[in-house]
């Protein structure tokens, strides 16, 4: 471990740009102070892997308007409450009398729906491959229990197409710290085609600081080679959790998805299958992405095109107390992490 740390600290080769795709990695990197123990020639940039950050404004707007509808309540994870739509956040809606319930697990909706059968509960189903199986479980339970007053407003996304989009549109990335949690479900093989297509190494990494350092070491060593290294073998296999994958495809099918600041990327999301469309709260039309603040550059931050510091709002109009863009809202957002940890 000391050798790895020494190597990363002393590295004096070609400058490298390594993207961590997952928001939990972004937070772990800041939390453990990794930028302060590696060479400035290894630059870590944050990718589009924080589910809150990539949510488009029309999605938030729809949640806000649903929360104000009589007989309807929006159920959400905490992170999403502070994200502004084109005018308001769910927190703002709550202050105006909107029905918003915060939960810790999607399964909590079942209890809410059973307790108040006359009310419709709309779950804000955001997330990546990691979270999708839980929504599938939730639907399975709702169907089994005959609960017809649960709806999902989905904004569910998949990783490979957006990584492909970043490589194709952005370029200049020399390695990917591949998301550990997503890989538990999908398997590490998922990244093979991308690694080969762009000749970029991928390291599937855990979240402990030592695991991240070892992954960075591997990526520097493998520069220019299109290979995938599974460095999180305790929980990640090549093919992933096949049972969870089957569960997801029973309820969901691929679709184009809208990403904040990037537009609609083909096949980069999943939506409810037609036979379960009765559980959908109108997710399909939510592709509009009109920034709350016109100068907000979330889209470019999310693809690593600019560092948070290069956004004209960063640290001025946009700070954790007054977030203008989603990247400043979530504790896993790049802007939030760069701001609170004063990362360069």
């Amino acid at each position: 471990m000391l050798k790895v740390q020494e190597f990363l600290k002393q590295y004096d080769g070609e400058p490298m740009r390594i993207m961590e795709v997952c928001g939990t990695h972004t937070a772990a990197i800041s939390h453990s102070g990794i930028p302060s123990v590696i060479s400035p020639k290894i630059r870590l940039i944050s990718g589009p892997g924080c589910p809150v950050c990539v949510t488009v404004t029309s999605y938030i707007d729809r949640l806000v308007s649903l929360s104000m509808e009589p007989g309807c309540a929006v159920v959400s994870f905490g992170d999403l409450l502070r994200v502004k739509g084109s005018a308001r956040s769910l927190n703002d809606a709550r202050a105006l009398g909107g029905q918003v319930r915060m939960v810790y697990s999607p399964m909590d909706v079942l209890k809410l729906a059973a307790a108040e059968p006359e009310k419709t509960f709309v779950f804000a189903a955001v997330g990546f491959e990691t979270t999708a199986p839980v929504y599938a479980l939730l639907l399975g339970e709702a169907v089994r229990a005959g609960l017809e007053n649960i709806r999902l407003l989905t904004s569910l996304k998949t990783m490979p197409p957006v990584i492909d989009w970043v490589c194709a549109h952005q370029g200049g990335i020399d390695g990917f710290l591949a998301p550990g949690h997503v890989s538990v479900i999908t398997g590490s093989d998922l990244f093979e085609p991308l690694a080969r297509k762009y000749s970029i190494p991928f390291a599937v990494s855990g979240f402990e600081p030592e695991q991240i350092l070892i992954s960075l070491y591997a990526l520097v060593r493998l520069r220019g080679r299109g290979v995938v290294k599974n460095l999180y073998p305790s929980v990640v296999t090549a093919r992933g959790n096949v049972q969870a994958q089957r569960l997801v495809s029973r309820y969901f099918e691929p679709c184009g998805a809208a990403w904040r600041g990037m537009g609609v990327i083909p096949n980069s999301g999943i939506r409810l299958r037609p036979e379960f469309a009765r559980f959908d709260a109108g997710s399909a039309e939510l592709t509009q992405d009109r920034g709350f603040h016109s100068a907000c550059r979330c889209g470019q931050v999310l693809t690593g095109a600019i560092s948070p510091h290069e956004c004209p709002l960063f640290g001025r109009a946009c700070a954790p107390q007054t977030p203008q863009g989603a990247c400043m809202v979530s504790t896993e957002g790049s802007c939030y992490q760069y701001y609170v940890n004063r990362r360069d």
Binding site: Q5, H31, S32, G33, S36, V37, R82, P209, P320, Q321
Partner: peptide
């Protein structure tokens, strides 16, 4: 931090 890094611990926001 345990790996010898340093991070700032800000006040809690919200």
């Amino acid at each position: 931090t345990s790996i010898g890094g340093t991070r700032i611990v800000p006040e809690l926001y919200g």
